[in-house]
């Protein structure tokens, strides 16, 4: 435990994730063009852009579900470009995909326990679900024995984030966590994400359309037509930029 906190302290000054010169194709169509992006340790980075500009594709590439023809991905200082998704997860990337992807016919409890697999040693014996998870998402505690697929969208979203946290990731990748969810739960999820960052000091890479949530981030990248077209600190995120890259 002490050695692990040492590592995270050591890296707190430099980059958690660095993506350079990524080009991804679906068949012959060129989706991502020369994408460069970096997530500093302990910060929250937000990726904005309209639908279909390649935000989800970029996250999938970072997770290893799609492979890039060129370029490199570094996690910490380790190249992970050639690793399979499960190896990347074990290194400490927690992924919350668009559409939640809860395992439908497995109970909520087992869904959470599956999150333990991402820990470096895997899941050992009878490990319980840590209490912090229920502090963040109290609603889950009442649903432990329900099937994951029977939850509502908002509950599934909370479960997906909780599941990713079970693996004690160093980087949390969130793909549109507030999409299609009622406003009150959006606020809950926002608060939870903020609290996670404050308490654990992990980095977050977020894809988001909700402006309110975007403002919480430290840094933003704006995407258009498969490339990064603007970036900077969110404090400088002007109305003009928003109009240009986010407004319909």
């Amino acid at each position: 435990m002490s050695s692990q906190s040492l590592i995270s302290n050591q890296q707190s000054t430099d980059l958690m994730l660095r993506v350079s010169d990524i080009n991804v194709y679906y068949g012959e169509s060129h989706i991502l063009r020369d994408v460069d992006l970096s997530v500093p340790a302990g910060q929250m980075v937000c990726l904005i852009g309209r639908n279909g500009v390649g935000k989800t594709t970029l996250l999938k590439t970072i997770m290893g579900l799609l492979s890039s023809r060129t370029g490199n991905i570094f996690f910490g200082d380790r190249p992970i470009t050639k690793l399979a998704p499960d190896r990347r997860a074990k290194l400490g990337i927690g992924y919350v995909p668009q559409g939640r992807e809860i395992i439908p016919r497995v109970s909520v409890k087992d869904n959470l326990l599956l999150g333990l697999e991402a820990r470096p040693q895997g899941r050992k014996g009878k490990e319980a679900i840590p209490e912090e998870i229920f502090e963040l998402f109290p609603v889950l505690k009442t649903m432990l024995s329900r099937m994951g697929g029977d939850l509502s969208g908002g509950q599934q979203q909370q479960l997906a984030i909780a599941r990713a946290l079970m693996g004690k990731p160093r980087l949390l990748v969130l793909d549109e966590p507030t999409e299609g969810i009622q406003p009150s739960i959006v606020l809950e999820i926002e608060a939870a994400v903020k609290r996670i960052i404050a308490e654990t000091g992990i980095s977050v890479l977020l894809v988001e359309q909700h402006l309110h949530f975007v403002r919480q981030a430290d840094k933003y990248y704006a995407m258009q037509k498969g490339g990064i077209v603007a970036s900077g600190s969110t404090a400088e995120l002007t109305q003009e930029v928003i109009q240009k890259f986010l407004a319909v």
């Binding site: 998704p85 992807e101 439908p104 497995v106 999150g115 895997g122």
Partner: peptide
């Protein structure tokens, strides 16, 4: 059970 129900997500979970 997880892998048979959702292969990609399972691999993302490690």
């Amino acid at each position: 059970r997880a892998v048979t129900q959702n292969r990609t997500m399972s691999s993302c979970l490690g």
